[in-house]
Design a protein around this nucleic acid. Structure first.
Lengths: 228, 228
DNA sequence: AAAATGTTGTCACAGAATTGTAAAAGCGCC
DNA sequence: GGCGCTTTTACAATTCTGTGACAACATTTT
């Protein structure tokens, strides 16, 4: 399994290389956008970690060009500012996920593994394999959709992100602050009702009975939980 | 939760101390690198905010030495120049995060909390989220609930707190005043039925027969007791 | 035993804190 | 401009907690 790490900061780059290396991945690194694109063509990596802010060629542009040549290779964006997430989300660059700096090494690894698992499933079943399920809901991150029976529900990347976090913590409470960190990035508006609002809208779409949610349950004073 | 703030600028130091103090952290401060190292050894803080530019002993050096003695205590670097980030970011120093001056107090708090959460040090349900049992009741503090057989009982933070105290004093009487101190904090309820009220509600939820409690027994004139 | 006294349990309700949601505004992209 | 998504605002709904009145209970005193 070969991973391309494109990141202009040498220390972050080396840190990622070291930890991925230790986990048994083969790693190639680029320190700017042009180099990243070159290496992508030459090395045919199975996975790409892409910094947003890079000299020579911006991360968005790199991703966009990669997508023109390969529409399936997973891309994980690394971004320093939470504002940049908006662009990543909005640009429809075909990114599979994003992380805000600073991130813990373990979190990066977990995210990479999750994406690889998903894309592995994707290859087996062709273009639209079931990726993960929550109750009677089948969630297809790649298509931004969920399916219950014959009903197709349109989701956003952020919806998917929230659901994925809950799914990964199945049976455990995800504290509001942790959810906020994982989905919006550290230090994002402590006293904002954005999270509640998002949960509310999400429930409207995915819950059978909004007044007694079975997928996104609230744990008063702590956060939210999905029981298997 | 004890936090060591090492920062040579008195204004920044005092500002940090004040805001952390108000958030309920215990704070010790150092104004130079050597003092920081001394205090780290003496006070065994749970978290360290470390200025990079300090007299006597540079921040990197302090961090490096701390890491030789303790490889798990979280370190948040405070740095004035963005160029310095590069060095901080490298995993060689073992820093968990960094902030560039000037920073807002809210952001510092957010980052500290994020790091503490990541390292599992911050739990609203107490230091120890471990499951414990009382009779046929299985208590899951981190989940804010208890389980008897197939029945799931929702609890509140205070419920958990009360139960934990009784569990820790198993077989011994916990005096009303002590329970009050431990759960509500020292110097609370002069004459209020808050404790009784809470016990009453708690019993309704967790006792099989409220009229003869087996988990929260009252010892008239003294307090409450849980016999194994 | 009965009464007196002090202690604990419970009810009803108010205030506080937390969470839910509709409406409107912001933002970026056709 | 419209459109889709997100966030803010403002308020409603819900949940949690503490209070005061009073009932129930235990203990001591008559």
């Amino acid at each position: 399994m070969k991973i391309l790490v494109a990141e202009d900061d040498a220390n972050t780059r080396d840190a990622l290389r070291e930890v991925l290396d230790r986990e048994g991945f083969r790693v190639v690194t680029a320190s700017n956008g042009r180099e990243a694109l070159d290496l992508f063509r030459k090395e045919k990596p199975d996975f790409i970690c892409l910094d947003v802010m890079m000299p020579e060629l911006h991360g968005y542009e790199v991703c966009s060009r990669i997508r023109r040549e390969d529409e399936s290779v997973p891309v994980l964006f690394l971004t320093a500012k939470s504002e940049e997430i908006e662009k990543v989300l909005g640009l429809e660059l075909g990114a599979d996920d994003y992380m805000t700096k600073p991130f813990g090494v373990k979190e990066v690894l977990a995210r990479i593994r999750a994406i690889l698992r998903r894309s592995g499933l994707l290859r087996k079943t062709g273009r639209d394999g079931a990726v993960f399920t929550m109750g009677d809901l089948e969630i297809h991150p790649a298509e931004l959709r969920a399916i219950r029976g014959t009903q197709v529900i349109q989701l956003t990347l952020r919806d998917i992100h929230v659901l994925r976090v809950l799914h990964e913590w199945k049976g455990k409470v995800v504290e509001r602050s942790r959810m906020s960190d994982l989905v919006w990035g550290v230090g994002f508006m402590p006293e904002s009702r954005a999270l509640d609002q998002h949960i509310s809208q999400l429930r409207k779409r995915i819950e059978v009975d909004v007044s007694s949610p079975r997928i996104v349950r609230t744990v008063h004073g702590l956060g939210y939980r999905y029981d298997g």
